[in-house]
Design a protein around this nucleic acid. Structure first.
Length: 556
RNA sequence: UGGGGCGUCGCCAAGUGGUUAAGGCAACGGGUUUUGAUCCCGUCAUUCGGAGGUUCGACUCCUCCCGCCCCAGCCA
């Protein structure tokens, strides 16, 4: 589908070796989002990698919610994530899975660890635990409760579970090594008390497992063979393995890490995205300016463009920042191939064809797509009164033909799909503002070259004033004016582009656009790619979102 | 100055001891074009973070150095 001989990445090499060594029968991967926000472009890569690997090796990929912390998780996010994964074009194997489905098993394993003297209930509070943990360069101190009898820990753990222990008072910790140079191994927390209602288990639990204690075991339960995550979890791998070794788990998954996708001018942090919403900088998770899958969908980005983009990215251990231009390339590439062509005048000014009878009307057939006859034709209406874009006309006849390929007073231009016309005179109001252009058409130039000596400067789009439909166009600019690369973390809110949304009212679109449907993509010729907005529009207003402008390579 | 990971063209990135150091994006030339789009052609790293070393031969092996990222949540 993509590059025929794309190099094999390091994970594929590992899988190949595993298969060759007979270590792995069927490859099983998983995409494990926490339902505490919407999916964004960064998740798209993880989805493509995990589902892609399963597809490639004829294996399975699970969709599993890592819902171990009810604090910020919700059913709304679960549903949104499910919809986004489907929209991106992937189907998980079997039912949607949840970490919360394994809570009982996880708890059983926790008691097993206590019985093996590998875990204990600790009564240090958060601050004390921090103090006991040591620092990056110095080891920590053993908790005073580290050697309490297993029976006592078991009783306390049961009390935590029953809800008789207050939040923050106790935790269940693994007994590993407080001197370990890897801080994750300094007796990590397995369970903490959280008296919260969980969106799936309700009030069944007063304690919830930590990520470290849950993730690997979830993988083991599901028979995941290759648990692929991002680089920041590399330091957790020894802990992941420790649980898999100590516990009687049904399978032994392995964790591999690759570089998380970052794109400049975009934020891919759920916390920051949430902030943008909470502070009112955008309308919501699906605001077309958001790098969320739902935002991009509403903006008009196709799932295939996102997939192609992700497939073009390497699965490697370097963590770079991809230029947003690369994403844009795949968006244009996909839209160019399939988008229906149409004309829409964003800043209309009247063009009166003086030598065309007032009562006359013609219609021409124009290709829906210039390079694809199979997409058929559409009907273009033509009459004496037309709309063209203000920026496509100039009174300055000294403008060179090379520099200005549009309509100039006294010169010719081609009306796309229709006649060649010449601008003859200009009508202005009291203030001297241009209100109308009078032109004359060159006969017999529809679908035919003009006579010798008549050289149109270029081609401009237009719309028949009698049949056009009014619409609103939303044009977007990047949400941030700074690349926000790497650690430009500081105050990302200060980098917001105040002009990220441009609402253009009273645009004039060709009649065929009255049939536009949500989910269809259009190219407004000479402008860009657009789609009908799926969000607002209850008042019958026709709103088109600009997905992305056409590539624009001429210097002004 | 603990541990882990990474450094190849402006960006992403192949390369696993012998290749003219892939490819994509961007950029820049030129051609086609009733979209300044698409499409097509061409240009774009004597050099692989740096310095040494091993070798007939190193981006690939060794040593040291420099730089960047991650880990001290009862977040994931």
């Amino acid at each position: 589908m993509t590059t025929p001989d794309k190099p094999i990445n390091f994970i594929q090499q590992i899988i190949n070796a595993d298969i060759e060594a007979g270590q792995v029968g069927r490859v099983v991967t998983r995409f494990p989002p926490e339902p505490n926000g919407y999916l964004h472009i960064g998740h798209a890569k993880a989805i493509c990698v995990n589902f892609g690997l399963a597809q490639e090796y004829g294996g399975h990929c699970h969709l599993r919610f890592d819902d171990t912390n009810p604090e910020s998780e919700s059913e709304e996010f679960v549903q949104a994530i499910i919809e986004d994964v489907r929209w991106l074009g992937f189907q998980w194997h079997g039912d949607v899975r949840y970490a919360s489905s394994y809570f009982v098993q996880l708890y059983t394993w926790a008691t097993y660890l206590v019985q093996q003297n590998l875990a204990y209930v600790c009564e240090l509070n958060a601050q004390q635990m921090r103090d006991y943990r040591g620092t990056l360069t110095e080891g920590g101190k053993d908790s005073p409760h580290r050697d309490r009898p297993a029976e006592e820990s078991l009783t306390l753990l049961e009390e935590m579970k029953q809800g008789s222990i207050d939040e923050g008072r106790m935790t269940l910790r693994a007994k590993i090594d407080m001197q370990s140079p890897n801080i994750n191994l300094r007796d990590p927390v397995l369970y903490r008390v959280k008296k919260l209602v969980h969106h799936r288990t309700g009030s069944d639990w007063n304690i919830y497992p930590s990520y470290d204690f849950a993730h690997g075991q979830e993988d083991a339960i599901e028979g995941v063979t290759h648990s692929i995550c991002t680089l920041e979890f590399a330091a957790n791998r020894p802990l992941y393995n420790w649980f898999i070794e100590q516990l009687p788990v049904p399978s032994k998954p392995r964790q591999y890490e690759f570089g998380r996708l970052k794109v400049n001018y975009m934020v891919t942090s759920k916390r920051k995205l949430k902030l943008l919403i909470d502070q009112g900088h955008v309308d919501g998770w699906d605001d077309p300016r958001m790098p969320t899958l739902s935002g991009m969908r509403r903006r008009g980005v196709t799932p295939r463009a996102i997939r192609n983009f992700c497939d073009s990215l390497a699965v490697a251990k370097t963590d770079g920042v991809v230029d947003i231009g690369q994403l844009e390339h795949f968006i244009r590439d996909d839209l160019n191939r399939d988008a229906r062509r149409a004309m829409c005048v964003l800043d209309p000014i009247k063009l009166l064809i003086a030598n065309y009878p007032a009562e006359k009307h013609e219609s021409f057939n124009a290709a829906v797509h210039p390079n694809r006859e199979d997409m058929g034709t559409r009907e273009l209406h033509f009459s004496r009164h037309l709309w063209i874009d203000r920026s496509d006309f100039s009174e300055d006849s000294s403008l060179s033909r090379k520099k200005y390929k549009r309509l100039v007073l006294g010169d010719y231009v081609r009306l796309r799909g229709a006649y060649v016309v010449r601008a003859d005179q200009v009508v202005k109001d009291q203030q001297g503002n241009l209100v109308e252009i009078h032109a004359s058409l060159v006969p017999d130039t529809v679908g035919a070259n003009p006579p010798e000596g008549c050289k149109p400067r270029g081609v401009i789009h237009w719309v028949c004033a009698d049949r056009s439909i009014e619409c609103t166009v939303h044009r977007y600019d990047r949400l941030f004016s700074q690349p926000l690369a790497n650690s430009a973390e500081q105050s990302f809110a200060d980098c917001l582009n105040p002009h990220s949304l441009d609402v253009i009212k009273n645009c004039q679109a060709e009649a065929a656009l009255a049939d536009a449907r949500v989910g269809e993509h259009y190219q407004f010729e000479r402008e860009g790619y657009f789609c009908l907005d799926s969000g607002a529009g209850t008042d019958g207003e026709l709103v088109f979102n600009c997905t992305i402008g056409l590539r624009d390579t001429w210097q002004k």
